[in-house]
Design a protein around this nucleic acid. Structure first.
Lengths: 258, 258
DNA sequence: CGTGATAAG
DNA sequence: CTTAACACG
């Protein structure tokens, strides 16, 4: 089973840049999209029909602000995943951030984690989100579920996860607070799959600022991640960053489980 | 002497679409631009230098709202026109609408006449502008000046001046009030030069809505005009609409005087 | 620097 | 439909 996550920075934008070709090629079983930035009805009808023919689609745009944030999870129709919008976290759910998809004993929790924003004005919001989410993961584990947590987490966990760690300790995505909160997910029993398998490999990034050729020079950040319940690690066949896939300031990431 | 007027719908936009090539080809002696929608300092430095080497430039952006309206008048350096920003009309001058350029006994009054706007919300403002401007023209005549009044007047004077007169009698640009006010300019001693020379020619338009191929089908309006003091009519060598010139939703118009 | 909403035309 | 400002990332 192949899971993908991609912050598309506007679904309608990425559609113009070959998303459907990418989808056919990648052929994910389960796909989380972040920053869809539109309603389902704003997507071209023919595209909607194509997607609906192959996937169960949970489209979860923000209700708080038009064209802002939002996420979606698509799963192959034959798999029979159930999808639930939101985490019951105030504010977060109005921004269409997280979707919980379930099948058998697996909870696939995916979406668009808050950005701390310029001046770290949303750091308190983001910290509360992290505490709430870690609690939810812990409860799934207590209930005997296995968990995959993925999406644009808007935090680079360690210095190795961004090209310029020293320059960014006060910037959104690499503050001590955000890194500390990231550890709450690990404390709830999850592992950072890609980093577990590539402990010392630098230059593994999933996001590059659009300003000034950062992507060409691979001056980036690894902020899109797959975390998985530790018992799942034995079933990991592949965990990958698809940096060659263009169309957004983020690239897709994937996880293949046996 | 060749006068031109063009509503460029964003000077920076039209620069990307060959404005400088057009300028070299048309080679106006005096040029009024409307809807420049930027400060002079926002124009590429090399363009500014090219223009400044050939023209005396009066750049008159709106101060009331960034990126809105504004006009400019350029005159060949050797001609020695003087340029004055504004008409002393409250509101109008803050929007960078009108420039008065003088040489000998000629007053070239040019710019961006108000749009009555959706719901005709600015019709009162536009009517006051017309009364004030007609008074200014009359005073120039009383002082013995000849006047050229030009620009985007945002009114089609007669039914022949737009493709769909019946559909537009309640729309901005063709209300009875705006057409009545247009006659104030004629009453002040000006003549509509192109229409005087082509009394019954339909299809002479200077603006086409960007919506749905109107320009290709010539479903347009003649709202950019040269009006001239009647004694100037004998000196008119040419009056023309340059509908083939692209780059804006308006096309340039010209007047050549002996 | 790019996406999308918005105001204005 | 297009321009430009703006918010957000």
């Amino acid at each position: 089973m192949r899971f993908y996550s991609w912050n598309v920075n506007g679904f309608r934008s990425v559609l113009k840049k070959g998303f459907m070709d990418w989808l056919e090629e990648a052929d994910p079983d389960v796909l989380s999209l972040q920053e869809i930035r539109c309603e389902w009805e704003e997507v071209d009808l023919s595209i909607r029909h194509q997607l609906e023919s192959a996937y169960d689609i949970c489209w979860f745009p923000a209700t708080s602000k038009k064209g802002y944030a939002g996420s979606a999870t698509l799963s192959k129709k034959d798999l029979g995943f159930s999808h639930a919008k939101g985490l019951g976290i105030e504010g977060c759910d109005a921004e269409g951030r997280m979707i919980v998809s379930r099948k058998d004993g697996l909870a696939f929790i995916a979406g668009y984690f808050p950005n701390a924003s310029q001046g770290l004005v949303r750091l308190p919001f983001k910290r509360q989100f992290a505490r709430d989410l870690a609690g939810i993961v812990a409860r799934h584990h207590a209930a005997g579920d296995l968990v995959i947590l993925t999406g644009d987490m808007n935090v680079a966990p360690e210095e190795i996860d961004l090209a310029r760690p020293k320059d960014n300790t006060k910037n959104p995505g690499f503050t001590p607070e955000e890194r500390e909160d990231f550890k709450l997910y690990l404390g709830a029993g999850l592992a950072d799959v890609l980093r577990e398998r590539n402990p010392d490999v630098p230059g593994l990034y999933t996001w590059w600022t659009a300003r000034g050729g950062a992507r060409e020079r691979n001056v980036g950040w690894r902020i899109d991640l797959f975390l998985a319940s530790r018992p799942l690690l034995d079933r990991v066949r592949d965990a990958r960053i698809h940096a060659e896939v263009l169309g957004s300031d983020h690239c897709p990431i994937s996880l293949e489980l046996a």
